[in-house]
Design a protein around this nucleic acid. Structure first.
Lengths: 340, 340
DNA sequence: CTGTTAGCGCCTTCAC
DNA sequence: GTGAAGGCGCTAACAG
């Protein structure tokens, strides 16, 4: 196989222990022998075997990242946030995506055992109890985004879905809209449900009747939902989409039917994906720092990790259950007929 | 620590060897004992330790992915392609990004040793010789995208940068343009250089004088390059940007100066990012299946891997040096003033 | 300062 | 069909 520590030791005329010492700068080593070992190691292009090392140290400096998907700007942003925060702290990323059901999730988790120090899990469509059962008890984990039900014993970083939806809906109401329809995200998705609740709360708060059309967070789903609304008796004055992708799909579909946005109907999104700025009309939406979501979660996880290794052995496993919420901010652009 | 195979063996009243046999379905085991072992393993929620396993099998079923960045749609697409192809073949992804210089690259490679079976490397700004030196000789690797100079002894999946640039430039020439300026990508980037060469070749082929303004693949860079052109004596009739981001930056910047696209000047991109379709004016660009790039590279790598493990030990390490090129296709939309 | 000795958790001959 | 023993490459006490 590859060149091992033993080979370096042999050629340098020392024991493997000494080589290990200079490699990890643990323990004192004579300057002369250190130099000799470093030279031999370089000549042999020796690289320590990560698996062997983490087997004994039980540390991998790797974080497992579990996402439902890798498609689109949303996840791209999440990963970017995670990656930046992880790199900054010296951690690597073992990424796995597309886990719809429990069996898949379970398989991935199994394969990650022993290869990661902690887990970042985004799983908006898996029930919290299932998650709780499937997640290895010994592995610190941080949940990203909302889940169905409460996950205990884990950090949790979510975004203010309900608050954001409420804000954008109220803005429309203040602009004079009275007939608003929500193009909802997938029913099984917790984030989507919270957004819908925010929408409904805002309408009910204004004494209005909330209407909802089902959708699925995709552009196509947005288009279909919009057309369903369009085909019904009366066109509302505003469409509140559950995310930017749906909003864009809706606008495109309506445009083909000769409906103009925002002149004939206002349409808003959620997420503030980069594309929304370039789109015509520029999308009124809710901004949440998706990369911050990933970064925060990573920061928490690494903190937990270092605490665990500090409280090494002592069963001081502090209860990790804490939730942090990334704020949501209204971004008014053209698609709602803003005057500015 | 966690529950080990030994514990399962003890509680099932068998030896670890037998447990290992049922876990990997290697070797014959009595149906009764198999059932008992499976039951105990499930009860104990036993999960084999990946590090230990790959230490002995010297297989990780993990691919190392090294990218220069994770930002933006381009890399999002690359990863998606890789992820899909890898999952399909049962491989996981150890991702690492943002490696500008040799030292960083080296560090990452070291840390991946023993944790991955092969490497997918995209490193457009690192010289091929450096890459050659830094890449572990024992680790099969596939290079994504162009590099500066020839990398031998490795698979190589590139896209037809020069051909695509030539196509789009010729299209503009056929439309009657005579004054074209190229908004170039980063000098150190091999893909960018090839695109520039394609542009120049097309112009020279038509007996025209190629003009080039430096840039850096970013939107901001595109804006600055466009303004530099704008501020010079005469505005050309067409701007050929090195990628979509630069094209978009250029269009936005020009618009602020009151220059209309495509009426006053045609602007084209390269990559065919999703955003180009939604942008106004819709971007004329060159389509390359970026996800296919990732997927192909992954497919090749896995093939190489299985061959290596098949030719196990026998020094039949076939020369891997082969290059595949993902084709480029002209996509005519509005930003070049197309009549359709 | 340096070498020797144990394993980390698992798979794999080789006997029985 | 099953068990015992050895070792993957490395680190972490111990002795010297």
């Amino acid at each position: 196989m590859s060149v091992t520590i033993r080979e370096v030791a042999r050629q340098a005329g020392v024991s493997v222990a000494t080589v290990s010492r200079v490699l990890n700068s643990s323990g004192p080593v004579n300057d002369g022998t250190r130099a000799r070992i470093e030279r031999v190691a370089a000549e042999l292009r020796y690289v320590p075997n990560g698996a062997a090392r983490s087997l004994i140290t039980s540390r991998t400096t790797t974080l497992g990242v579990i996402l439902p998907d890798l498609h689109g700007e949303f996840f791209s942003e999440v990963i970017r946030g995670i990656d930046g925060a992880a790199r900054q702290r010296g951690y690597h990323l073992l990424v796995s995506s597309s886990h719809s059901d429990r069996a898949e999730l379970d398989a991935v988790l199994r394969s990650m055992n022993g290869r990661v120090d902690g887990l970042l899990v985004m799983s908006p469509h898996v029930d919290a109890r299932v998650l709780q059962q499937v997640l290895p008890a010994k592995l610190p984990a941080v949940i990203l985004g909302s889940t169905t039900g409460e996950v205990l014993a884990h950090w949790h970083v979510t975004m203010d879905n309900a608050g954001g939806a409420r804000q954008i809906t109220q803005h429309l109401i203040e602009m004079g809209h009275r007939q608003l329809v929500h193009l909802a995200g997938p029913e099984a998705n917790a984030d989507a449900r919270e957004r819908q609740q925010g929408f409904q709360a805002a309408l009910q708060g204004a004494g209005l009747n909330p209407q909802v059309v089902p959708g699925d967070f995709t552009e196509r789903g947005g288009a279909e939902a919009a057309l369903r609304v369009f085909d019904s008796a009366e066109l509302p004055t505003a469409l509140v989409a559950a995310n930017d992708s749906m909003a864009i799909g809706a606008i495109l579909a309506l445009r083909e039917r000769g409906v103009r946005v925002p002149e004939d109907v206002a349409v808003t999104g959620f997420d503030d994906l980069p594309i929304g700025r370039y789109f015509t009309p520029a999308l009124t939406t809710v901004h949440v720092s998706i990369d911050a979501l990933g970064a925060q979660a990573t920061a928490h996880l690494v903190t937990a990790l270092t605490q665990v290794s500090a409280a090494n052995g002592s069963a001081a496993a502090a209860s990790f259950s804490t939730t942090e919420t990334i704020p949501a901010r209204l971004v008014v652009r053209m698609s709602c007929g803003a005057t500015r």
